[in-house]
């Protein structure tokens, strides 16, 4: 039993890593008041570009770097459109997803070697493999935490840092002020537009690493739709974690865990409950959202940043 649970936990963490990266990224973006629905596209481009890089250079660190670069580029487009040009953020995010999905698929059929019909699909490259930490990985159950790949270990570090930065530093305070009440933040001398640019781009970078984890570690290689809707799940996870990086892990474990359990169910040949099981996290998210909003009506601050998805312009209310 313990062995089974340990293996489920290990798979859950592996499936959850990309989600945690992207969730923390999107939390930062949304906390500054920018809603980015382009995650699915950004994760796909991150996944395809990092796999192509590792295929040709064999360098995993370069691959992650290239993915980060694509994240910077795509989120800059979103930032420019939604912050400077004050475009509708829902439409802008969706167009990033549309473009990113198409572009990733395009690259996946063009960047491959001539011998494979220029396809990247079906190729094998370097990948992040689990590194067992001596001693720790032998602990029953919790050992699963210490038999993971490098990117997962890094995310263990990012979670507390992201939390500390957001809630215990001056920069974090400014970031939250910009998302809560940009007028006041502006009056306090915070550059609202610059802050939003910065965290939209930082967020996008993390999201792209999430994509890279898929093609470099979780499901090494490139396949169309490798994200399987993870970019949308992340939007739910952000709500679920109440815009707090330290809680990002719980939602990711929930979704990842349901994936892992479903994996077991499929292996045992039962297909019916799988879809209904998959539905639960989305229902839970809606309920969580309702409860949070309801609590806010009593003056408790738990929910979405007040200025989420609202462009800011000086002197305009």
């Amino acid at each position: 039993m313990i062995v089974l649970l340990t293996s489920i936990l290990a798979i859950t963490l592996r499936a959850g890593t990309s989600l945690i990266y992207a969730t923390i990224g999107e939390i930062y973006t949304e906390r500054s008041g920018v809603l980015n629905l382009g995650l699915e596209g950004m994760m796909l481009v991150g996944a395809v570009s990092s796999f192509a890089t590792v295929y040709y250079t064999g360098s995993l660190s370069l691959a992650v770097f290239v993915a980060m670069l694509t994240g910077v580029l795509l989120s800059s487009i979103h930032a420019f459109l939604s912050i400077t040009m004050r475009a509708n953020q829902v439409v802008s995010g969706l167009s990033i997803t549309l473009f990113g999905t198409g572009f990733a698929s395009f690259l996946g059929q063009r960047l491959g070697p001539e011998s494979n019909g220029r396809y990247l699909i079906g190729l094998i490259g370097e990948k992040f493999t689990p590194i067992a930490i001596p001693g720790l990985s032998k602990i029953p159950l919790l050992g699963a935490l210490f038999n993971q790949d490098l990117l997962t270990y890094i995310v263990y570090l990012i979670i507390p840092i992201a939390w500390f930065y957001m809630f215990k530093t001056k920069n974090g305070l400014n970031l939250r002020a910009v998302g809560e009440n940009p007028q006041t933040a502006d009056a306090m001398g915070i550059d609202v537009l610059k802050t939003r640019y910065l965290y939209t781009i930082i967020g996008g970078t993390l999201v792209a690493i999430g994509g890279a984890h898929l093609s470099l570690a979780y499901a090494p290689g490139w396949s169309e739709n490798i994200t399987g809707g993870r970019g949308w799940i992340v939007i739910a996870l952000v709500i679920f974690s109440m815009w707090n990086p330290s809680r990002a892990i719980w939602g990711a474990l929930l979704f990842g865990g349901i994936n892992a359990v479903q994996f077991r169910l499929q292996a045992s040949g039962t297909n019916i409950p799988a879809s209904f099981l998959n539905m639960l996290p989305y229902l839970a998210t809606i309920i969580a959202l309702v409860v949070m909003t309801w609590l806010e009506n009593f003056g408790k601050k738990v929910g979405a940043p007040a200025a989420l998805a609202t462009p800011y312009m000086r002197g305009e209310k």
Binding site: I77, L81, T97, L98, F99, T101, G102, S105
Partner: peptide, 12 residues
Amino acid sequence: AMGLVLQGMILF
């Protein structure tokens, strides 16, 4: 995917 790329690109 050319179609999707174009759809997205027009929007920017």
